[in-house]
Design a protein around this nucleic acid. Structure first.
Length: 378
RNA sequence: GCUGCGGUGACGGAGUGGUCAAUCGUAACAGACUGUAAAUCUGUCGCCCGUUGGGGCUACGGAGGUUCGAAUCCUCCCCGCAGCA
């Protein structure tokens, strides 16, 4: 079980400061949630992750079901013990994979639409590689092609075996190019699945329901009201948020007030550094994003001066740390020159040093924002 | 000195008379990435002009030659490797 306490609401915005108590410790919110899909923050050990000021991680049901199988995790004493992470954990339900391995893959689109497109997903359209049925989804394992069925029941059972503190309802994350009718039909399914998740769950883990509805206000409202009225321990806001950052913030400002104010709100899969302040001011308590870890492995370091592409030749002659105002171990001990050398030499330590820094940087930034809420500055 | 093999774009290495500015890989450069199919993917990669289609120029060790046409065939030369003297 979890316990959520709102300590303070900003006078300037909907931002709020809170404490989320879990069986594995407390989280100061708003908090960034690094993504540990396969029960690891890629390139880092759990001990290193602790030093990045991370308070809670999110792992993935679909991926851990395929590998190593939740039974193995359970036999190892559950996720916390398995991955040597004594702090709070979430598991995502696999609902994102319904999108990313389905229409996301077919159309090459992400959660946010960058360019205008004529492509559209209409009611009745079916993704090429997965089958979405009334009770769940048939996936093809990307490992060996095996057919795998995950629905609300399966997802909850897997998540119970994994043993995270907070688990998510199985949903269908919709694409930014889904039309109104597709989104509406999908939403009905997600709502039905949400109830099933509540019915199936036997553990004391906290279960978060997920609000969908795409970019359509009436569907978002309907979803927030419906999911918000179910006895979930918290809420995730998922799916896509229109085609610009402004619509995203507007949509959050519109949606969150429909949810019970005493329960925590998690924003699923959003969090480029420039998005963080805007989403926090809408009242989001926790949010996860692959950006700091994923981009790190592609050479991008986030700094107070903006993104740096550490593969660029210029940095070979730069003896400064990634960010001279950063107090992380990477910045204390290693130069841009060295890190760039490692990238160009294809040394895996490059990925590690930047992953460490990026996580520390994101967490430090959110820490500052918590301070700002305390002082009613945002 | 003889015999054999070979010299291709930054590098490795295809091509062996027209469809070749030359497959592919690497490097280089540029771009993308938001609940991780992702240490990944995409684009450019001889020079010059055109917004595109495209056009011009210079190129496959060097110099000649054969041919309508040569990286590809012939002659001589230079260089490398191997074997034999």
């Amino acid at each position: 079980m979890i316990e959520f306490t709102v300590l303070k609401k900003s006078k300037k915005s909907a931002a709020r400061l809170g404490i989320l108590k879990t069986p594995h410790g407390e989280i100061e919110t708003p908090a960034f949630v690094p993504v540990a899909t396969q029960a690891v923050i890629k390139t880092l050990t759990a001990e290193e992750v602790l030093q990045t000021k991370s308070q809670i991680l999110i792992c993935n049901t679909y991926h851990l079901h395929l590998k190593p199988d939740e039974k193995i995790v359970k036999q190892n004493g559950g996720l916390h013990k398995f991955m040597n992470w004594g702090k709070p954990l979430m598991t995502d339900s696999g609902g994102f994979q319904v999108f990313s391995l389905g229409f996301g893959r077919d159309y090459g689109t992400g959660k946010l639409l960058k360019e205008k497109t004529d492509k559209a997903i209409l009611a009745g359209d079916k993704p090429a590689n997965i089958k979405i049925k009334d009770d769940g989804v048939f996936f093809k394992s990307y490992i060996d092609g095996e057919t795998i069925f995950i629905g609300p029941r399966e997802s909850i059972k897997i998540q119970e075996k994994l043993g995270a503190d907070i688990i998510f309802a199985f949903d269908e994350c919709t694409s930014p190019i889904s039309d109104y009718n597709y989104t509406k039909q999908s939403l009905e399914k997600t709502h039905r699945w949400a109830k099933m998740c509540l019915d199936v769950k036997k553990s004391k883990q906290a279960l978060f329901g997920i609000i969908q509805g795409g970019k359509f206000s009436d569907l978002k409202e309907e979803s927030a009201k419906f999911i918000g009225n179910l006895p979930f321990d918290g809420f995730g806001i998922g799916g896509e948020f229109g085609d610009s950052k402004k619509t995203m913030t507007a949509m959050l400002n519109f949606t969150i007030p429909y949810l019970p104010q005493e329960k925590p709100v998690h924003l699923l899969g959003i969090g480029h550094i420039e998005d963080i302040k805007p989403i926090i001011t809408t009242g989001v308590d926790t949010f996860d994003c692959i950006t700091p870890t994923h981009y790190a492995r592609h050479g991008i370091a986030f700094t107070s001066k903006g993104r740096l592409d550490m593969q660029k030749k210029v940095f070979l002659k730069d003896k400064n740390p990634l960010d001279s105002s950063c107090t992380c171990l990477t910045c204390q001990n290693y130069s841009r020159s060295y890190i760039t050398h490692l990238f160009r030499a294809k040394e895996i330590t490059a990925l590690q040093l930047v992953t460490f820094h990026n996580l520390y940087y994101f967490n430090s930034y959110v820490e500052k924002l918590r301070e700002a809420i305390k002082n009613d500055k945002i």
